[in-house]
Design a protein around this nucleic acid. Structure first.
Length: 120
DNA sequence: TTGTTGACCCAAG
DNA sequence: TCTTGGGCCAACA
């Protein structure tokens, strides 16, 4: 389809469905969109979120494939993303790592995914 | 259209 | 476990 929704919007649609207390990776999101090698583009999309001020997108629930936080932003000495995740019940170690084995979000079911790919 | 930049991923060493 | 290098993709100048 040539009139499919923007790549950004698809990324946001998926991130919005990550349940509290779970995390997923940039690469997994890219794979859900049918672009297993577009992990960097997903990061680019989330980066643009800052300026858009879309507070309904839980960007903090996205970490890299190794369960590590890739964001350098920090306030009063503590990493912002780590703070938010811990407040949601996801433990983050001192070296900014999350136990992916325990907190990984498995992803969407086929019906939800199809809904997003269609533009829902 | 080309080159550069990123909140990445993966395989090797 | 950490570091490198190569690869991939979208946005932007």
């Amino acid at each position: 389809m040539s009139t499919q929704p923007n790549f950004y919007e698809q990324v946001y649609a998926i991130v919005r469905r990550i349940p509290q207390g779970k995390v997923t990776s940039y690469g997994r999101i890219a794979a859900m969109l049918g672009r297993p090698n577009a992990a960097r583009a997903v990061g680019y999309a989330l980066n643009a979120l800052k300026e858009r001020q879309e507070h309904d997108v839980p960007w903090q629930r996205v970490v890299n494939s190794q369960g590590r936080i890739s964001i350098v932003n920090r306030e009063h000495g503590a990493n912002v993303q780590a703070e938010i995740l811990q407040s949601e019940g996801v433990p983050v170690s001192d070296d900014l790592r999350v136990e992916m084995r325990l907190y990984l979000w498995e992803g969407l079911n086929l019906m939800e995914l199809d809904d997003i790919l269609r533009g829902g």
